[in-house]
């Protein structure tokens, strides 16, 4: 089983050093909370981990392979949902979801899309344009991918932001299932949400 190994990561944005010397490993079933103040570099860390941002120093390995090179296996194994939802306002919720899953190389059959929308309680909005949804509904539409994805590593940037308590509970339950099935998750969050996992790490970026 592949695991995520992070060694001596440093990140510079503009002229500012956001963080340095961040190292950790994440194994099957493990959850990592990334904590820190606004602007501490939580999102930048996630963007490095998913391979969008090249770190100033350090390495990220998945199953012994560097993730910054054209690592197709890592792309298939990982899923990143940023604070941007990645949804098109002019497409419907189900059209958005179908394309997003298609892009990620996942099964985008109608049944799966419907099941995912059901899980996040957006079934009634399946054919509404995303532009007409509220912030929380958009977030849920974006997070619906978690019910389709086969990715083992989830990188979620502020997944609980804009969600109501019921939705937070639904998401926490989905995370629990994912971790129990041997998945891994890294979340940045300001809210302390109780998620059952075998091993919970915390990483504080100062």
């Amino acid at each position: 089983m592949s695991k995520l190994t992070v060694e001596h990561l440093a990140c510079v944005r503009g002229d500012r050093l956001l963080f340095k010397n961040i190292s950790f490993t994440l194994d099957a079933g493990e959850l990592l909370y990334v904590l820190g103040d606004n602007g501490a570099g939580k999102s930048s860390l996630l963007r490095i981990l998913c391979g969008i941002l090249i770190p100033e120093q350090g390495r990220v390995h998945w199953g012994g392979q560097d993730v910054s090179k054209d690592n197709e296996q890592y792309r298939l194994d990982s899923l990143f949902i940023s604070h941007l939802n990645g949804l098109k306002d002019d497409l419907s919720v189900s059209e958005n979801l179908r394309f997003a899953t298609y892009l990620a190389g996942e099964d985008n059959q109608e049944v799966n899309v419907n099941r995912a929308l059901d899980a996040v309680k957006l079934q009634a909005y399946a054919h509404e344009r995303v532009g007409s949804l509220s912030q929380g509904q958009r977030r849920r539409a974006s997070l619906a991918r978690l019910w389709i994805s086969r990715a083992r590593l989830w990188l979620l940037d502020e997944p609980f932001a804009a969600l109501d308590t019921a939705s937070i509970a639904i998401l926490a339950e989905r995370l629990r299932q994912h971790l129990q099935a041997g998945g891994m998750a890294i979340l940045t969050t300001h809210q302390q949400v109780d998620i059952q996992a075998a091993v919970v790490h915390q990483l504080k970026i100062a």
Binding site: C50, S78, N85, G86, L87, A100
Partner: peptide
């Protein structure tokens, strides 16, 4: 809207 970063990590 973030679609581009999803394409970049596809």
């Amino acid at each position: 809207d973030g679609s581009l970063e999803q394409m970049a990590i596809a």
